[in-house]
Design a protein around this nucleic acid. Sequence first.
RNA 1: GGGCAGGUACCAAAGUGGUCAACUGGGCCAGACUGUAAAUCUGGCGCCUUCGGGCUUCAUAGGUUCGAAUCCUAUCCUGCCCA
Length: 370
Amino acid sequence: MSLHRHYQSKFSRARLGSLVLPHGQVATPFFMPIATQAAVKGLAPSDLKKIGASVVLSNTYHLWLRPGEQIIRRAGGLHRFMNWAGPILTDSGGYQVFSLAKIRCLRENGVEFQSHLDGAKKFLTPEKAVQIQQALNSDIIMSLDVCSPFPCSPEQARRDLERTTAWAQKGKKQKAKSKKKNLIFGIIQGSVYKDLRLRSVAELVKLDFDGYAVGGLAVGEPASQMYKVLDYTLSALPEIKPRYLMGVGYPDQIVAAVKRGLDMFDCVLPTRNARHGSLFVLKKGASKKTIPEENYDLMNIRLEKYKSDFQVIDRNCDCPTCRGGFSRSYLRHLLVTGEPLFVRLATLHNVRFYLRLMENIRRAIKEKKL
RNA sequence: GGGCAGGUACCAAAGUGGUCAACUGGGCCAGACUGUAAAUCUGGCGCCUUCGGGCUUCAUAGGUUCGAAUCCUAUCCUGCCCA
């Protein structure tokens, strides 16, 4: 399985393409809203469809603990379980190795988690991670990796990378036992060390994955350093395979990454920030730019100054919340009073902002402006 | 008119001789959030400050005391009960 490239920019390494997945063909570059526990918090699948989401991202670790992959298998897979007909990418649990560092213990053959729900010891192996994702029937399976923190010593980054490669091999082998058409991606690690990143790329490419993800970025390092890593990492990757920058990021970072040849993104920012009252809006004058969303501001709708502000969030926005005429005043009221409707309206707005960002990126590449 | 209980910061509410510019909620202000243990978390909210501290506050006015939000007296106000 490879990326169908429709257009390769001559100004940058940006590329326009499409990816054929078991649950549909999707245009690249794309952004995946996050549905960690089989739901994009606050939204129904019909909402996602309406605002133009193509792929959503879910999570192996969380669904493994609850409700358990067998329940989802019996439901007919994750698509049926959550009633989302489009493609799904599932993260492997590798991010939880990083984010839940305090309650896990790394072993050679896998990770022992002390469940954050009930404290039960749960052992996740690279094989198990693939099996769970197959039970979920996700379109894109991610190989179990060890996401290095930042800062990270070269020694630790090397150990994490070596384990990631070893696990990638095991995951790939497990995947090969099934004839299903799900894709499997390998994850590049190596922190901010060029030799390690290049080594990671070489080892994974040898295993011939369906796509390659750059992991271990946006974990606290300055953006300039992230771009440096992307520059040398991307140039070592095969052109024909999709490339996924995991967990990134702010709109300008996504644009910067697309210019470096990335095709896929995901991030909690639009959904989490929405719940926290932080709404993505265009900067003044940005609507005239090629990719307006690159020039964004965050509007803290909780502020008192919005108490009697009856404008919509952003009159340039085409999301159901802005189109529907919901005012800043009303949204602030919903947030302050803790009404669940706030989450839905704010999330619709922020996720639409990101999806429109991607639409504008694709258009810009097509129109030779990026 | 009599009895009882009260009046503390924007609101509610602790504190009842010194460690009190005053617990705690709410509210407000500011910030953070990047493959989601997050509708969460972190600061700040009398005035001034060279960040050491200084100054004015606990209904009002007096008083006791080395020292009062805390004790005493008077006044004003609020709630409940009785007439």
